[in-house]
Design a protein around this nucleic acid. Structure first.
Lengths: 340, 340
DNA sequence: TTGTACGCGTTATCAT
DNA sequence: ATGATAACGCGTACAA
């Protein structure tokens, strides 16, 4: 292998830059990481040498030596829909602005998947982790504790946070919406969620729904509580099953995914009037719900803000600006529209 | 903070495992990376020691030593909508199945943003890169060439691919849809795209539209070509402007984002009949377009497949199973529905 | 302000 | 099948 400076795959090392600039590698290191620590003349020569040889620092070596990296890991339940996009985008924006990189993993709603990803991320020596789920395997907890890595959970305001939390309360939000429907005069309120098995958020939403019924003095009719898989088609199926039952509801609260949109489109197809025949409320603040006919009453959730604030508190800890645990409740908002 | 075996952040190293298992670090390394290279008895002792000390390998060190990593970088124009989700998910699934990690960057549709991310990814010594854009700065190209990293471009079938390409032809797709509208009898066909400045895909789609008009023998009316920013509201605005003009179109081809859905909802609100008053066709195969009333004619693009195949050809190169350049055309499909 | 010596945790290479 | 040794490229700590 010829010691040609431009051999394919043979990237320039710091010492090549140093040699060309007529200084020691250590000076190059300093010039790159804190320019104020070298003389202006040397800085200029180093920068020139960097450009000349096309030097790209090796963060594997840097990280190994300094015991810190600029990579943050993030684990979301799924990437196949847009629900987590705003949060990912918020995280990404804040991290990149501070010179950090984002590593993303998809655990497929399974805690074992999460455990594997956590192991992989810790192997990369990530500086911090953002976890959407709030349930974890015992082994995952043990690894996180041993590693001592800062963690932010974002899926819901957990009761027993692992470390830091930035989110809103799924239970409070579901309760608020159910009570909102009650205030509007609806008395047989159905609730449709995603499968609650292994999904803490679905369980919390059901809990909030039941709490609201209790507060409102309404009886809980099990026939009015449905769990459906994600997707527009599921929402359509749910509304048909509920409205064609013996005792149909006068309002349906779709507490998950795009179920409400699917139900609405199905009603349009069948000519069922909304909110005349049945009122429809949604949980997720997705864009289409504002533009349908009628537009859908829903909750405005701070998804992007969760990403931004989550990344911020994480960076505060990573960079030593803060030390304690943090729990940030970013709240939610009810958006009343034509569907109720 | 419970301070147990090991100071905070002081994870077990390979030599701790080795000591506990009564072997050398090298044997541990082998046991972990290729169990068939050590005796069964030693393997068992090593595995036990790994569990006992909670060992998590350090891939920074491993990567530095072996000169290879298991991280792939991916750069998308934006993360704030669901358009790239299927592709990301496809990439993620294939990578994780092969033990690779995905690092994601969002360049905000700017080539300078892409350049910065490429530099950051190369600094992490990524094993390969997936780039959605097909336009890059000169400096980015130089860095990629010097690094010799395998690259897959996915945004469109580029004429002069940097390395490998897995995509479909935006131009061919736009031409096909325009001709489809012509075959259906429409004669004044409008075309709405995202801003073409800095967006090669928008330009290609306009090119395909114009090519189709030429083939069909229709004149190009500049008043029928609009560029709008992304978003449902833009689609609504576009349809209003076009239909309230002096010479309105009889069909509109929305070649970007969720513009078609926005237009459709606006027509519902105003009581404009689709396709009676105006036909509507879309480019993106997003879920809602199948469920609206009427459902929207659109192209089915192989977005998830692009991610999967892209990751596959990338891994083939990374792992030395293939060497040459590859250009995979995954094609597209026209889905005729009620809106045309 | 700049340089020297050493170590970060792992793997390649060669030896046993 | 297993071990010893020497990198990998950079940053920390200290010296000049």
């Amino acid at each position: 292998m010829p010691d040609d400076a431009g051999a394919p795959g043979a990237g320039a090392r710091m010492r090549d830059v140093a040699q060309r600039a007529g200084v020691s590698p250590m000076t190059v290191s300093r010039a790159l990481r804190d320019p104020s620590k070298v003389s202006p003349a040397v800085l200029r020569r180093v920068e020139e040498a960097v450009r000349a040889v096309g030097y790209v620092p090796n963060r594997l070596a840097g990280g190994l030596s300094s015991m810190r990296t600029n990579v943050v890991g993030m684990i979301v339940p799924s990437l196949d829909n847009s629900l987590y996009s705003p949060t990912i985008q918020g995280v990404s924006a804040v991290l990149h602005a501070s010179g950090y990189q984002l590593m993303i993993g998809e655990c497929g709603h399974r805690v074992e998947g999460e455990e594997g990803l956590i192991a992989a991320f810790l192997a990369q020596r990530v500086a911090g982790l953002m976890l959407h789920d709030t349930r974890h395997t015992a082994e995952a907890l043990a690894m996180l504790r041993r590693a001592g890595v800062p963690v932010v959970e974002t899926g819901t305001l957990a009761l027993d946070p692992l470390d830091m939390v930035v989110s809103y309360s799924n239970e409070a939000a579901a309760q608020a919406m159910t009570l909102h429907l009650h205030r509007l005069g609806y008395r047989r309120i159905a609730c449709v969620t995603l499968p609650s098995a292994g999904n803490e958020r679905s369980r919390e939403r059901q809990k909030g729904y039941r709490a609201a019924l209790a507060v409102a003095g309404l009886a809980l009719d099990p026939a009015l509580v449905l769990e459906m898989p994600p997707g527009l088609a599921s929402g359509a199926e749910a509304v048909v099953r509920l409205l064609q039952s013996a005792a149909p509801p006068d309002a349906i609260f779709f507490a998950g995914d795009v179920l409400a949109a699917g139900a609405l489109f199905e009603c349009q197809r069948r000519g069922w009037d909304i909110p005349g025949q049945v009122a429809v409320a949604a949980f997720d603040d997705i864009d289409i719900l504002r533009h349908t006919v009628p537009p859908v009453t829903t909750l405005r959730l701070p998804r992007a803000e969760i990403g931004r604030r989550g990344a911020e508190v994480l960076l505060d800890r990573i960079e030593g600006r803060a030390t304690g645990r943090v729990a940030v409740d970013l709240g939610f908002e009810i958006i009343q529209r034509g569907s109720t």
